[in-house]
């Protein structure tokens, strides 16, 4: 029974993935991509990797999907209409096929790496969730660089702004009727979403969850509030928002340097301080991830563009 479910899931993932690439039109491809992400998330959940499933659903499918749709909307407004997409892109097909083939080759040819034994290391990590322990303690370096990459991406987006628009609020103008459904939704969702986002971060220490998943939920809450006209979109020059953007990387780097100063080594957490240090880093990272992701979706300041 469960084998049938897994086989159907695999077939669906492959089919939807193909549809996303082979379909004509950017909009259709984006919609299939979102569906693909949700199916892959179910796949991760079937494998027991609930942290990855949450991250895939929230970031891979939800946030990336929204970014793709927003890009499609902008393209259409610029009438650089996406429909100029050629039906078959041979170099891309060769490159994609090559990557897939080499992964397949690596799977069969390379020896299976022995999973490191966490039995002794995990009790010293400060948190009970092995994924969080790896992300913020054993391999903190990767996570630090990831958080900085997000920031760099946002700066890249801001560089697309026109000089004249620089002081304008970020993103397009949203119009929500004051008593309309979106305004009501924007009032009902944030309390629930805030609790859920913070819960995801807090729960991440011991079970499924974490800064990236919780931060995405918080970013979505902020976006809904801004689209509903309840919260004003930030401006580039506002100091508090800029501080929120860099808070995570700064706290992360600071604790890494503190580890070095205490003699444990850069980004190495002493066992006694590991839990409070990880919780502090995660809290700061969540703020930065939430703000960065929300501002990425909002896009550069754009006074001229109109949003229906």
């Amino acid at each position: 029974m469960s084998a049938a479910l897994d086989l159907a899931l695999c077939a669906l993932i492959l089919g939807v993935g193909l549809a996303s690439m082979a379909g004509r039109g950017v909009f259709r491809a984006a919609i299939f991509f979102i569906t693909y992400g949700l199916l892959v998330a179910i796949g991760w959940a079937r494998l027991g990797a609930y942290d990855v499933a949450l991250a895939e659903a929230a970031i891979g499918s939800g946030l990336t999907g929204v970014l793709l749709l927003a890009a499609h909307g902008r393209l259409r407004r610029l009438r650089a209409a996406a429909e100029s997409l050629s039906r078959f892109n041979l170099p891309a097909a060769i490159a994609g096929g090559g990557v897939a083939l080499s992964f397949g080759w690596a799977w069969f040819a390379l020896p299976v790496p022995r999973a490191p034994d966490l039995t002794y290391a995990l009790p010293q990590a400060g948190v009970g969730n092995p994924v969080t322990a790896v992300l913020l303690n054993f391999r903190a370096w990767d996570t630090l660089v990831e958080s900085i990459v997000l920031l760099a991406a946002l700066i890249g987006v801001w560089m697309m702004a026109r000089d004249a628009d620089w002081d304008a609020p970020l993103g397009l103008r949203y119009h929500a009727r004051p008593s309309g459904v979106l305004a009501s939704f924007g009032r009902i969702l944030p309390p629930v979403g805030l609790i859920f986002g913070v819960y995801l971060v807090w729960a991440g220490a011991e079970s499924t969850g974490g800064a990236f998943q919780g931060g995405t939920v918080l970013a979505a809450v902020g976006l809904v509030a801004m689209m509903a006209g309840i919260m004003r979109p930030p401006r580039v020059a506002q100091g508090a928002w800029r501080a929120a953007l860099v808070l995570g990387p700064v706290v992360f780097l600071g604790s890494g340097l503190a580890g070095a100063a205490l003699g444990a080594g850069f980004l190495t957490l002493p066992e006694a301080l590991a839990k409070p240090a990880i919780l502090t880093i995660e809290a700061a990272l969540t703020v930065s991830i939430a703000v960065t992701l929300a501002l990425l979706v909002l896009g550069p300041p754009d006074e001229g563009g109109q949003q229906a």
């Binding site: 459904v181 939704f185 009902i188 969702l189 629930v192 229906a308």
Partner: peptide, 24 residues
């Protein structure tokens, strides 16, 4: 229950928004 209520809320809101966009 929360999942169902949130899905109801989101679906109802999105349906209104899509319908209004389709009208225009």
């Amino acid at each position: 229950t929360l999942i169902w209520v949130l899905a109801l809320l989101a679906a109802g809101t999105v349906a209104q928004l899509v319908a209004r966009a389709a009208l225009s």
